[in-house]
C-alpha cells in the first residue's frame, strides 16, 4: 500500500506539488491525469524515491520512502518519463543488467527475461543497441525493464507515449493483465486510456488534487452523461421533448440538425424519450446515448483549479 500525506515539492520559488494526500491499495490501477506541468512526473519521482519531498512524506507498506528507499525500491518497478536507458547497451544486455541488479538468480532471470521479452515483443531488437531503436521500441524496453522483477508496485510515467495504436492497445492489455493484487499507477494525458485501463482516476492541476474517484464518477460529472442525441430526417415539432419528465435542457445544432437532450442529475431519459418519439411519430434517423465526454470534464476540472 502506498500512502501519500501532505506531499509538497518546490524548486526554488516554484511549487510543483502542493499538499497532495492520497492512498493507493493493492488492486488499484490508478490513472494519474493532469495538464502538462501539473506535477505528475514530480509526484511519481517522489513516489519512487528519486526526489526527496520538500515536506510531507510517502509511505510504502507503512515505511517511509525517504528513510528506506533502497529496501522499498525492490518492490517497485518504474518507467521514468521518456524511458531513459543506457544508449550504448543492446536491449538484451540492458535487461540482463537490470535483472542482475534487481537480484534475480540465474533461473529466475532466464524465466523472467523470456517472459518479459515475449510480453513486450522485443525479440527483433534484442541485439540492437538502444540508441538505434525507434521511440516505440525504446518505450517498450523501458516497460520491460520496469516489470522484469514482477514488482508489487508499478509506476509508469506515460507508458504509451510514442506508440502506435496497435502497440498502445497491447500495452494497455498488458497492464490490465498484471495480477490483480498489484498497485499500478500510470500517468497519461490520453483520457480514453483511463477508462480503458484504470479503475481509479486522480486528476491534479497546479500540483494540487482536483479529483479522485472512479472513471465512471468522472464521466458522471459530464453534462453529457446519459444525454440523448437525436437526428431528425426533416424539421419537425420538437418543442414537446422539453416537457418529458427528467429532461433538463435541450440543445439544437443548427448545422447538423441534431438535437441533444440533457437529463436531470441521476435520471435516465432514454425510455421516456423513445416513448415520446413513438407517440408523436417523430422522423428519427439516429439516436444515441452519450457516456459522458471526458475532455469536457477534464477541461472543466483542471481550468477550475488554475483559477485559485
Amino acid at each position: 500500500m502506498i500512502s501519500v500525506k501532505n506531499l509538497c515539492k518546490s524548486f526554488g520559488d516554484f511549487t510543483a506539488v502542493d499538499d497532495l494526500s492520497f492512498e493507493v491499495k493493492p488492486g488499484d490501477i490508478v490513472g494519474f491525469l493532469g495538464p502538462n506541468g501539473a506535477g505528475k512526473s514530480t509526484t511519481m519521482k517522489m513516489l519512487t524515491g528519486f526526489l526527496t519531498p520538500t515536506s510531507g512524506h510517502v509511505r510504502v507498506n507503512g515505511r517511509r520512502m525517504s528513510k528506506n528507499a533502497t529496501v522499498l525500491q525492490r518492490d517497485i518497478g518504474y518507467l521514468p518519463e521518456g524511458a531513459p536507458a543506457y544508449a550504448e547497451m543492446t536491449t538484451f544486455q540492458f535487461l540482463n543488467f537490470i535483472a542482475d541488479i534487481r537480484g534475480l538468480n540465474k533461473r529466475e532471470k532466464r524465466e523472467r527475461l523470456k517472459e518479459v521479452i515475449e510480453q513486450v515483443e522485443l525479440y527483433d531488437v534484442l541485439d540492437k543497441t538502444i540508441d538505434t531503436l525507434s521511440k516505440g521500441f525504446r518505450r517498450r524496453v523501458g516497460l520491460a525493464q520496469a516489470i522484469i522483477h514482477n514488482p508489487q508496485i508499478l509506476i509508469l510515467d506515460e507508458p504509451t507515449d510514442g506508440l502506435d495504436p496497435n502497440q498502445k492497445q497491447h500495452v494497455r492489455k498488458l497492464i490490465k493483465n498484471l495480477s490483480k493484487d498489484k498497485i499500478v499507477i500510470i500517468s497519461t494525458h490520453i483520457l480514453e486510456e483511463v477508462s480503458a485501463v484504470c479503475n481509479r482516476v486522480i486528476i491534479i492541476a497546479d500540483g494540487a488534487m482536483q479529483f479522485d474517484g472512479t472513471p465512471l464518477q468522472l464521466q458522471q460529472q459530464s453534462r453529457y452523461y446519459q444525454a440523448v442525441t437525436l437526428k431528425l430526417s426533416y424539421a419537425a415539432d420538437i418543442t414537446g421533448l422539453l416537457e418529458i419528465p427528467g429532461v433538463k435542457d435541450m440543445q439544437v445544432d443548427k448545422e447538423t440538425g441534431e438535437v441533444t437532450l440533457f437529463p436531470e442529475q441521476g435520471k435516465y431519459i432514454l425510455g421516456p424519450i423513445t416513448e415520446h418519439v413513438h407517440h408523436y411519430r417523430l422522423p428519427i434517423d439516429r439516436l444515441h446515448v452519450d457516456e459522458g465526454r471526458l475532455d469536457d470534464v477534464f477541461v472543466h476540472i483542471t481550468s477550475h483549479g488554475s483559477h485559485k
Partner: peptide, 14 residues
C-alpha cells in the same frame, strides 16, 4: 543529461 540517473537511483542500489 540522458535521464538514466533517474533509472539508476530508483534501482535498489545505494
Amino acid at each position: 543529461r540522458s535521464g538514466t540517473i533517474e533509472l539508476l537511483m530508483t534501482l535498489p542500489v545505494t
